[in-house]
Design a protein around this nucleic acid. Structure first.
Length: 431
RNA sequence: UCCUCGGUAGCUCAAUUGGCAGAGCGCUCGGCUGUUAACCGAAUGGUUGUAGGUUCAAGUCCUACCCGGGGAGCCA
């Protein structure tokens, strides 16, 4: 009798099989018992009539939720099942039977309670398909760059300097000197790109921002790429290809999970079918004003403005060429208008907000030093970064993507905390 | 840090003008041979976030604090 996963069950219809899993829920109609069994790959319903096996019926009917066990039975085709079959229960070996009630109930519970029990919450409901989709999105991200010959690399987590000021850094003691948890690998990837050409990484980033929104966590995995000899336009083309590849790959590989989440996959597919929209920052300000938003040139867009732009274009939209004052020191200025930088933010539709920030990087040593000073930063801690412009500087570009935000959009969940196994937020360090 | 809403049974929530602390779900028991968060019946379950104040009387009003949800700023 083969031991299989629930995801493989449909391939074994008519056969006797063994499953290993947990009791997700059970229902009884007196003489017939239904066990919902989960094993991480899916959920299957096991059925047992009292007349089939009275002892087994008695044993199974008193199991509490989340009992772990090994079950044996025959798989029977059943069109009423979402996976096309169910298990006719023949035997059951209990591995562990809980003595306390499982805290997560199969009904609405409040976010605070669920987050306190995140280690158990991830077993239930939407959490399992969401985390499986997360896996597919990470894999698609890596596959995209692998197919294009990029080199996977890493940036350090422990750093001595910041990318964008120190107010949002987690500081720690590094053998007596201050160090910080990295908030972006970008500067290091620029160096690595000068060694390897085109590079990418995905790794943890930390922001000590006291943000309390559905789009923010203090620890997240940032997906970054840096490309030597890429200009602003090539940078955006790559980003568009990447986002489209991730979305379409996940739609293809995780159709069952998206269906379980009741995501409107047709809408998602339409959103990435056409070329992404592009709008100049100044035009975006004008458009938002026409849409009734109180913004003026020089303002950063908040969540309502980003949502409005997404609604207007009904697909991802690049906002390009921001005023210099709004962006960090390392971005290259637009030669045709030095008050703007060759940067773009990519806004996801349906109110999911900014998913990518990228730019062509300043490639002249003199410009970089000047821009550091304008930003009020000392040159000395960034000398290694300046060096990159000293020895064979080339035009280069890159971007950072919040993959969790992309996954939030793909899955259609409302809060970023649901697409991260153990999200870190301003007031959450447990579990 | 600011704005805003909230904290009552294990969970989700009611409680009229300040006047006996309530329901659903879960757990337990009983019933039901195709249930889908099953259903029906019974039983169980309380330091109303903490501290103080007003009052004959406080879940309800006042003050301070703690905790949580949503949002802002900032960003991915």
């Amino acid at each position: 009798m083969p031991t299989i996963t629930i995801s493989e069950a449909h391939q074994h219809i008519g056969q006797q099989v063994t499953l290993q899993g947990w009791l997700y829920n059970k229902r009884s109609s007196g003489k017939i018992l239904f066990l919902q069994i989960r094993d991480g790959s899916g959920v299957i319903q096991a059925v047992l009539g009292v007349s089939d096996n009275p002892d087994l019926f008695e044993k199974a009917s008193q199991l509490p939720r989340e009992t772990s066990f090994i079950v044996h039975g025959r798989l029977k085709e059943d069109h009423r099942s979402s996976i096309g079959c169910e298990l006719l229960l023949e035997d059951l070996e209990i591995l562990h039977q809980p003595t306390e009630d499982f805290p997560i109930e199969l009904k609405e519970q409040t976010p605070g309670f669920l987050m306190d029990h995140r280690h158990l919450w991830i077993r239930t409901g939407r959490q399992v398909p969401v985390l499986r989709i997360r896996d597919a999105a990470f894999r698609a991200f890596r596959e995209f760059f692998y197919q294009r010959g990029f080199v996977a690399t890493e940036a350090p987590i422990l750093t001595g300097t910041s990318v964008e000021g120190t107010t949002t850094l987690f500081e720690l003691d590094y053998f007596g000197v201050p160090a910080y948890l990295g908030q972006s690998g970008q500067l290091y990837l620029e160096a690595t790109a000068m060694a390897l050409g085109r590079v990418y990484w995905i790794g943890p980033a930390f922001r000590a921002e006291k943000s309390k929104t559905r789009k923010h966590v203090t620890e997240f995995w940032i997906a970054e790429a840096e490309m030597a000899f890429y200009d602003h336009k090539a940078n955006l083309e790559l980003q568009e290809d990447l986002v489209r590849f991730i979305v379409t790959t996940v739609i293809e590989e995780k159709a069952a999970e998206l269906k379980e989440l009741e995501r409107d996959v047709d809408l998602l597919r339409r959103e990435v079918a056409e070329p992404f929209a592009h709008i100049d920052y100044g035009e975006a300000v004008t458009l938002l004003q026409e849409l009734g938003h109180e913004v003026s040139f020089g303002d950063d867009f908040g969540a309502p403005q980003e949502a409005a732009l997404g609604d207007h274009f009904k697909r991802p939209v690049f906002i390009e060429r921001f005023p210099v004052e709004m962006k960090p020191f390392y971005m290259k200025r637009d030669p045709s208008d030095p008050s703007r930088v060759l940067a773009a933010d990519l806004i996801a539709p349906e109110g999911y907000g900014e998913i990518i920030g990228g730019s062509q990087r300043v490639d002249s040593e003199a410009d970089l030093v000047a821009q550091l000073k304008q930003a009020g930063l000392a040159v000395e801690p960034y000398q290694w970064y300046v060096d990159l412009r000293k020895y064979g500087s080339v035009p280069h570009s890159g971007f950072g993507m919040g993959l969790a935000r992309v996954i939030t959009w793909i899955t259609g969940v409302s809060h970023i905390r649901e697409v991260i196994p153990f999200p870190r937020q301003i007031n959450r360090l447990y579990p």
